[in-house]
Every structure is written in structure tokens, then in C-alpha cells.
Amino acid sequence: MARRAPLARVVGHALRAYLQAVAPSVRLVGAEAAESTWSELRRTQADRRFLLYYWTEAGLPLMLYGSREEGLLGRDLAFVHDDTLGGRVTADVLRRLGRRAWLLRHRHAGPLARDLGRLIRSSESIGIAVDGRGPYGHVGAEFARLAERCEAVSVPLGIRLTPAVRLRLAGPVQLPRAGAELTLSVGAPIDCAVDSRTLRSRLQRGLEVASSMAGTRSGVLTRAASAGA
């Protein structure tokens, strides 16, 4: 236990330093469209709590996006992380980037129940990876239940980062290479007023569509930019 916290700090420090060095060269593609969709959602769902969800591997790119664009991933959003190595590294990067983090203490049942209860009852909007602790690329059953209980507007966020370095750090991590393009797509909000199994399937499909949209948008906008140059 004593060795884990320093390890998370060291890795977090290295990742944050890398992100800060590379960030200025990363081009945000389609940010205007993403921000416009987000503004419309905020307008039509005024006073509602939002639950922005994404794949674990999108976590660091999204923080990078948030450090450049204050709208969608602004400082009123708290990112949820757990106390696994990957989660603590994420928390460390968040802290160093001046972002807010919400801890879920997964190690023991009592603290986890306390943290989940507070999360469910909070009115704060949150960003959360839905495949944390695996299987990656699949919406977890517990996340579907969390979305159902939070009674928030669940919005999938898809990203495409290219070129990227892909690492395995407890979970999958994507880091931009210098000059990379980061495309963010805000998917359609998911109607959570259904049973858990249907909701899980909807959340999965919603995120797959948003991720696919980010890929398509990335290609279209990049080609348009090349043609205009």
C-alpha cells in the first residue's frame, strides 16, 4: 500500500508533463460542433444533472481537450476515478491540470458504498469511464445501474486521437503524439427510463455511435482542411 501512492504520483507526474509538452501541438478537430451540441443540450435540459460517459482509453485525451476548451469539459464537471493504480494516476493528472476529481474507494465495501451513495445523491455533473476495470470497450452492468439511479442526462462522448501512443496502465491509455488531431463527438442523450438491461444496451450503442461519429468527423474535417489549404 505504501508503495502504490508514490508510484501513482510518479506516473501521474510523467503523464502530466508529457501532456503539457505535447498539448500545444495537438489540433482539436470539430470542437465547434461539439461545443454547439453541448450548448444546445444545456439549453434544452436546463437545471438537469449531466453524466458524460466515455471509454477508459478516452480519459486522458478528454482531459487534454478540457484543458484547451473550457465549455463542454469545464471546471463545473467532476471526473470520477477509483483507487486502482490507473484511477490514482488519473486523479493525479487531474489535480495537476487543476480539474476536480470524485473518488470511488473500490478497495473496501463500506467506503465504496458510502462514495456511491454520495455520487448518486449529488446534483453535480460528472464525467465517468464506463468500462473501468474491464472488460474494456463494454458498458459495465454497474454503470448502467448507476446511470439509472443518478437520474441524470447520460451523454456519450466519443473521441478519435490520431496519431496516438497506446499504453496499458492497469487499463488502456491513449496519449497524443506531437501534432496529433483530437476529435470529440457529443452523442445523443440516452433515455434512462427503461429497465437495466435495455439501458445498458442503449448506453453501449450510444457510445459506439459517438465514437464512430468522431472517426467520421475527423476524416471529413481533415480532408476539408487539406482541400482548403
Binding site: 465495501a109 465504496l112 458504498a113 458510502r114 456511491l116 451513495g117 448518486i120 445523491r121 452492468a141 454497474e142 445501474r145 448507476l146 439511479r149
Partner: peptide, 11 residues
């Protein structure tokens, strides 16, 4: 029960 359900019971 999953951890969400346990949290709800506790509350």
C-alpha cells in the same frame, strides 16, 4: 445485489 444496490440500502 451490486454495489449500487448496497449503497441504496444503506441510504
Amino acid at each position: 445485489m451490486d454495489s449500487i444496490a448496497v449503497a441504496n440500502v444503506l441510504y
